[in-house]
Design a protein around this nucleic acid. Structure first.
Lengths: 132, 132
DNA sequence: GCGTTTTTGACAATCATTATCGTTGCCACG
DNA sequence: CGTGGCAACGATAATGATTGTCAAAAACGC
């Protein structure tokens, strides 16, 4: 503890998870990602996948979504803050940005005296393909 | 089967859950509600509480929230569509309405051709009391 | 290279929710 | 008023994702 370094080490497993997310489109569950890494021959423990995903999520490098289905879905996505429009049939996802919503949320929270504000917003619908 | 009635029967348990929700403020988990019913002497099974809550949620009579913590929280709340501003420390909740957000979500979804649109929005912050 | 410290990973534990399935009670009709 | 059908109930077991544990392995700084 005499050290003050960041203490984030660069490991093979972390790179593998990060790389995989870089190639993937759409959302995947932790267990999905774990299975994919296995298929690739990467030897990574499920626990580590969870930990790595949490770390990345904390660092803001990936996005987490909690669909009604229950399991958490992770995805590497563009930097800024944004939300998702998800097809409830096929799962196709569109990233949407809503500056108006952001400011509205902050304003409302401030009106009630709430500080350190964050929010989650997800839009569900049926995409054009699945409607037909 | 010759009948076409709605087949929603009026049971003691359903009334109990509904009544309890009517008296409660704030959000409570299914298990909380179950425990409270027990304390009152109402004999209701946990399974039934879950089923009833789901039914009420489907009917739009109560609101469901899925905080990052994991468990679902239920609350009887005002009729119209609205969202919640929740203190992440003490859990105090404020109902907020955002017509602008509603229309924005619908508009964005429509732009991408999505139909049958719904959305979830929750705002988290630290309430004035907990800030100090 | 060496020691320290983080990280890993197999497994068990947790915990809310859901399924099962025999029993109970509501409701309608005779 | 009695009865039969059918939905609801409820105790328990099952599910399944996530988190905790802890010894062993690996990475980083020197």
């Amino acid at each position: 503890m005499t050290e003050s370094s960041a203490a984030v080490r660069n490991t093979r497993q972390r790179s593998a998870v990060s790389a995989l997310l870089g190639e993937m489109e759409g959302f995947h569950s932790a267990q999905d990602l774990h299975a994919m890494l296995r298929q690739r021959g990467e030897r990574v423990g499920l626990t580590t996948v969870y930990r790595t995903l949490q770390g990345l999520a904390d660092a803001g490098e990936i996005d987490v979504m909690r669909p009604p289905g229950g399991e958490h879905l992770y995805r590497r996505c563009s930097e800024g803050h944004h939300h998702h429009l998800v097809c409830r049939v096929c799962g196709r996802t569109v990233e949407v940005a809503g500056p108006a919503v952001e400011s509205w949320a902050d304003r409302v929270a401030a009106q009630h005296g709430y500080a350190d504000v964050s929010h989650t917003l997800e839009i569900f619908g049926t995409c054009p393909t699945c409607v037909r």
